[in-house]
Nucleic acid binder design. Structure first.
Lengths: 219, 219
DNA sequence: TAGATTGTTAATCGATTAACAATC
DNA sequence: TAGATTGTTAATCGATTAACAATC
């Protein structure tokens, strides 16, 4: 009985975390859990968990709690991890190569089906079962295959241009690892940017702040 | 004239982005900007920019706007990027290696001063000017040098244990790239987790959602 | 049935936006 | 001075928490 209102991004961003914790519980053989127990585990309020889940439907059972396996599966469907969307990765430098090997694309809803770079030294190399193709071949590849999302690991200066080219090829979703905030006009476009340096700077502030408050607490 | 109230994390998380945009403006030779112009550029409201900045002080000038160079420098100080905090990175696998080469630690407030791994095949290798040391040497290293933050690129299963060991060595800040949500009790502890898979799953939902709404709009 | 825990409505809290007086 | 734009207070909006009736 999935509901059909708008769901805030705050809620959406918590869903993968629920999915992750439920996966861990499942592995540990836990079959049922109450919102209260899950809240304690995840450092949230029980209220928030129930509110969040009820954006999508009533997956619990009064007096009992939630079936871990069932809820896990429901969230999988909510996120759409079962659709086998197809991803390509552009820019097989240090970072790109690391993601190919390290990120569990399949478990996160995407099949990685192509690697591209414009560096001749990399073209033809095989990484994790995929052969690096010439970046000039992207549009031909997109014409021949369905491509749902592009992972951008190119230099920041090339980010916008690369994204524009991909939009023209019909690719509307981006996982952006460049420093640059790409702009995409397409109505169906979605961009998920991971600004690593921004996170590191925020950490820097927090370290300062923690020290400030602990030293002022001393007095 | 820095203010001294509590600043919400929502504001903190936007500061690095301001810093980044101001840096770009600086490079382009722009010397002054109004909150209205900056808002258009960053896709925010002018009001929010003024509110955010005024958490830390009045950096603008009525009738004129903000001096780009001055504001850039102020934010640098606010974030504490000038303190030369020291970082070590644990786990020199694909991801760890990529970050060593790719992330601008220095520009983000930290000097990377040590690399550690427990894999004998990696120990002794030189990466970007640093020699990989045996993970067993971490506590000795921390005793001999100041270490402010640890970058965790170890397998998820080892995350908590590694963090515990580091806490015992006096390291209280973590940039966590494992799947696992580490728990740290220390009052001064700060953790910045980058759950790559979570972001990818959120993107998966958004792709689904964008398609749902554009197909329903067709009708 | 009694106890537990959900789903949901209402209350609170915080963050964003709007408005405007201060001032460069 | 007049025009522009800030800093800041007030209004709005959204998200989180609390409460409780429904129900397993």
């Amino acid at each position: 009985m999935p509901k059909n209102q708008y769901v805030s991004t705050a809620v959406i961003r918590r869903m993968p975390r629920y999915y992750r914790f439920l996966g861990e519980l499942l592995e540990r053989g836990v079959t049922r859990i109450s919102s209260k127990e899950l809240a304690a585990l995840m450092n949230l309020t029980a209220s928030q968990i129930r509110q969040d889940l009820n954006c999508f439907g009533g997956f619990g059972q009064q007096g009992f709690g939630y079936h871990v396996a069932l809820l896990h599966e429901e969230i999988r469907k909510i996120l759409g991890l079962d659709q086998g969307f197809r991803a390509i990765l552009i820019g097989v430098g240090n970072l790109g190569r690391a993601f190919v090997n390290h990120v569990d694309f399949t478990g996160s809803g995407f099949d990685l089906v192509g690697l591209f770079d414009k560096n001749p030294a990399l073209i033809g190399k095989k990484i994790s079962g995929l052969t690096v193709q010439d970046a000039d071949e992207i549009s031909a590849f997109c014409a021949a295959h369905t491509v749902d999302v592009a992972v951008l690991c190119v230099p920041s200066e090339a980010a916008q241009q690369t994204a524009n080219g991909l939009i023209d090829c019909g690719v509307t979703a981006f996982w952006n690892f460049t420093q640059y905030d790409i702009k995409v006009e397409h109505p169906e476009a979605v961009v998920e940017s991971v600004h690593l340096a921004d996170g590191l700077m925020a950490l820097c502030y927090q370290v300062n702040d923690a020290r400030r408050s602990s030293s002022s607490a001393e007095k």
